[in-house]
């Protein structure tokens, strides 16, 4: 029989961003573990800060820790679209592979189009997103292959350009999304499948406010991700995300992406994606290249 002992093989002090330094033991008195997750099983930070596949949140918990630890992650994302530039940065805390708390700041720069829309060149829509996600049951990798990890989440979004988004027809500058995600890595086929159902009023995920002249009701939207694991470090995949279409003056479309994610090491994941965000603020075919870096501990 193995006696429990303090597994400080990887010293917490070695990690500058180590949340476990704050809490040396779990509630049950077990010492916290460091760096326990399998590569890439913390997902890729989404544009809203939750862990997932870039667009859709997955039933994963951010950070590199198992049920015996507290992990953290941070991301920066840049999406160079045809006429706009989207940027986000955020951080997330993953508690015992059970609860995820996240924050992201989104900046959507209208560049030249801003002038054409009368907002001024480089007018930037900004939004704060605070999220919480709870994994209810299941595991992405282990246990019954027919039972996915299932999580529910909530995102409070606050648009910082309230008067402008109201002028565009939005009913509110802030809103709350609720969602449920089911995620499983089907090992027999090296295929990760995610489905997310989201209740939302957001226009362009909230960058153009919430609700509008066409509808101010909650809409049930679908988000899906498919990813194929080529190696321990390399995954290719695609995503789809449907959205409401509330604004009469600015029709919007579902979003798509195709991505390649590479685990540079245990702490760094780099993602390159082709994104098709459809029509945004009256300008169609907003396609472009997305780059994202995620650090996780």
């Amino acid at each position: 029989m193995r006696k429990p002992f303090f597994r400080s093989v990887l010293s917490p002090a070695a990690f500058g961003l180590c949340a476990s330094c704050l809490l040396p033991v779990t509630a049950s008195g077990e010492p916290l573990r460091n760096e326990g997750k399998l590569l890439l099983t913390n997902g890729i930070s989404t544009v809203e800060g939750a862990s997932g596949g870039g667009l859709a949140p997955w039933a994963t918990i951010a950070g590199n820790e198992t049920k015996d630890g507290i992990g953290v992650s941070a991301h920066v994302t840049d999406d160079e679209l045809k006429d706009y530039e989207y940027r986000s940065a955020g951080a997330a805390l993953g508690l015992f592979n059970r609860l995820e708390l996240s924050y992201a700041r989104q900046n959507f720069n209208t560049q030249k189009i801003g002038a054409a829309l009368g907002l001024g060149r480089d007018y930037t829509f900004r939004q704060d997103v605070v999220g919480a996600k709870l994994r209810l049951l299941g595991d992405v990798v282990y246990d019954n292959p027919l039972v996915p990890a299932i999580a529910v989440g909530v995102q409070y979004k606050h648009n910082l350009n309230g008067s402008i988004v109201r002028a565009l027809g939005a009913k509110s500058a802030s809103g709350v999304d609720v969602y449920a995600s089911a995620t499983k890595l089907i090992l027999a086929d090296s295929l990760l499948v995610n489905t997310t159902l989201r209740m939302t009023k957001a226009n362009q995920i909230g960058l153009l406010g919430f609700g509008g002249d066409k509808s101010d009701a909650y809409h049930l939207e679908f988000e899906g991700s498919l990813a194929y694991q080529l190696s321990r470090r390399l995954v290719v995949g695609g995503e789809y995300r449907s959205k409401p279409d509330n604004l009469g003056v600015a029709h919007e479309n579902a979003w798509f992406d195709g991505f390649v994610a590479y685990a540079v090491n245990r702490n760094l994941t780099a993602t390159v994606a082709y994104t098709d965000l459809g029509s945004i603020a009256t300008i169609d075919r907003q396609r472009g290249a997305l780059f994202s870096l995620q650090a996780a501990f």
Binding site: R33, G36, T66, K67, D68, D189
Partner: peptide, 28 residues
């Protein structure tokens, strides 16, 4: 613990890779 099992999986992946087992077959 979970982290031990994950470590075990990584070592098995390493041993399978050194034997040049295709990654899809490793996952299978």
């Amino acid at each position: 613990q979970q982290a031990d099992m994950n470590r075990l999986v990584e070592l098995l992946q390493r041993a399978m890779s050194e034997e040049h087992v295709r990654f899809a077959a490793q996952n299978r």
